[in-house]
Amino acid sequence: MTSSRQQIRQYIRQARNALTSDAQYQASIDLINQVNSLEDTPCAQNIALYLATDGELDTQPLIEALWHCGKHVYLPVIHPFSKGHLLFLAYTPDSELCYNRYGIIEPRLKKDAIIPVADLDIIFTPLVAFDQNGQRLGMGGGYYDRTLAPFQNSVNAPKAIGLAHDCQKVDSLPSESWDIPLEKIVTPSRLWQWES
């Protein structure tokens, strides 16, 4: 099962990296419209996103649109002491950024910029692939699964919504016991939604 997950990761990563810069740009603009049409967006104030890497959907135009609407945006930072966990830090145009151990850009760690996960309204999660049941396949580190696990079945939990290119959808994903399916996944062309 692990090898098939790895094969899916490899195939989808190649597919999204093969997108032209024009296609990537158009996808990032279409994403803004899709996110703005979500019922969760208007009342959300604290929104977690991420900076794209490895062919992921470019989130910077969406981040700038959210700033323009007066929303507070937060980015994930690898927790320095709690292995496999994430912190979320405020992200503004003035934020100092650095590369983490995976070569992903994140805000430089500052204690006063951290927001408790419970105070986030939406956590937009990256993913490598998703299927028609809302299963999400990440990069394999389990960071988002660990972040979201304490909030499963909690009424006041942050809404976890996946972001992906349309080409990242597959028919079916092999899942593990720790995988947390998503209720919603947004692609540039549509919203995928499942019952919780």
Rank of each mutant, 00 (worst) to 15 (best):
S4Y: 14
S4T: 14
R5M: 04
Q6S: 13
I8A: 05
Q10V: 04
Y11T: 14
Q14C: 10
A18C: 11
L19I: 09
L19P: 06
A23T: 15
N33C: 02
Q34P: 00
V35W: 11
N36E: 12
E39L: 14
E39R: 15
P42G: 08
P42N: 09
A44R: 02
L49Y: 04
L51T: 11
L51Y: 08
L51R: 10
T53Q: 14
L57P: 02
L57T: 03
P61S: 10
L62F: 10
W67E: 00
H68I: 00
G70P: 10
H72Y: 14
V73W: 02
Y74C: 03
V77N: 01
P80E: 11
F81G: 11
H85K: 11
L87Q: 11
A90S: 13
A90R: 14
T92F: 00
T92A: 02
S95R: 11
L97Y: 05
L97Q: 07
L97F: 04
C98W: 06
Y99M: 15
Y99S: 15
R101A: 15
R101G: 14
I104Q: 01
I104Y: 05
I105P: 10
I105G: 02
E106P: 05
L109M: 08
V117D: 04
V117S: 12
A118I: 10
L120W: 02
L120H: 03
L120Q: 08
D121S: 13
I122Y: 01
I122A: 01
I123V: 14
T125C: 10
P126I: 00
A129D: 04
D131V: 13
D131R: 08
Q135Y: 14
L137C: 06
L137K: 09
G138M: 06
G138Y: 00
M139L: 10
G140R: 05
G142Q: 03
Y143D: 01
Y144P: 00
Y144L: 00
Y144Q: 01
R146D: 01
R146I: 00
L148P: 07
A149W: 05
A157H: 08
I161R: 11
A164S: 06
D166Q: 05
C167W: 06
K169E: 06
P174D: 09
S175M: 13
E176A: 13
E176W: 05
W178H: 15
D179K: 01
I180Y: 06
I180K: 10
I185W: 05
P188L: 08
P188V: 08
W194C: 07
E195Q: 15
E195F: 13
S196K: 15
